[in-house]
Design a binder for these strands. Structure first.
Lengths: 159, 159
DNA sequence: TATTGTTATACTCTATAACTATA
DNA sequence: TATAGTTATAGAGTATAACAATA
């Protein structure tokens, strides 16, 4: 009798949404990191730089909550960007504990180049999907990640 | 005049599918790892164990390709599972370089418990979506991760 | 010569605790 | 006392290189 071996893509694991998200994430991160390498950026640095360019004047605490990273991780990322002249820390005069992270002109320029690179990487990853399917995927992911009717951007704190 | 500050959830970053996938991944991994902790498993160990239980008789090379991990990482995961008596390595008699990774009875039993835990975690993560939306999300992710008409489970090799 | 599994190493990411300065 | 930022550390994940056994 011939082999009746189940292909791994038909395994139970391959139907778990979180497993699929991990695969998409790891493939996507790999490609994005490759796409950003020529600018000396990684996904995490790019994310912080992007938000520093967003006009939201995020504090480091805001960045930590939004990116679901620990505040201590944000420190290292912001410091690296600051040392490269891409962002500045601006102390909030109303609450001198808090520091807004703002892009410099150089940071904004680099972000623009980086955005082009990540958009291209995203398009490559999603090349199999039609435009409607991409919009649908984006909407579904947004709904899971930013549930409607939730005030705060991210409820998670330190522990 | 009042603040006209853009919320971070309306930033350009929040529309990038890869960024959203990363957020879903990191939240999902965190919850799945918590759900698996009482069984002394992590997501990566669970993935390998799941495939060892799948009936596919995967070689370590198969696992590496399917999980998009380097073969050297598979070695460590399989060794840990093997030392705990959850899987065995079975040398392929036709190609003595290759070793199939198979679950023991104990491994299959543990996997069953773990599957319940990860399913619950997945449901929590996706609680905001209707059943139809979950099916739609699953189908879209599957299409990206396992493009139809591709023979191999994963084309990526070592470098 | 190429492939499977293995060992080793370095770097990044993640999680946690403790400290400081402000509030 | 609580919060924003910081420092430090350990463990997990990721990326490479080199090697032995086998094909």
């Amino acid at each position: 009798m011939p082999d009746e071996v189940v292909p791994l893509s038909e395994s139970a694991l391959a139907d778990e949404i979180e497993f699929l998200a991990i695969k998409l994430f790891s493939a996507g991160t790999r490609r994005a990191n490759e796409a950003l390498r020529h600018l000396d950026l990684r996904v995490r640095l790019y994310s912080v730089l992007s938000l520093a360019c967003s006009g939201s004047r995020p504090s480091q605490r805001d960045l930590a909550e939004f990116l679901a990273l620990d505040p201590s991780q944000i420190v290292a990322l912001v410091t690296e960007l600051e040392e490269r002249g891409l962002v500045t820390r601006e102390t909030d005069l109303n609450d001198r504990r808090s520091k807004a992270v703002l892009a410099t002109d150089a940071g904004a320029a680099l972000f623009h180049s980086a955005k082009v690179a990540t958009s291209r990487a995203e398009a490559e990853t999603l090349t199999i999907l039609t435009n409607e399917e991409r919009a649908s995927l984006r909407a579904l992911l947004r709904k899971v990640v930013f549930p409607p009717g939730e005030q705060s951007d991210a409820p998670r704190g330190r522990g």
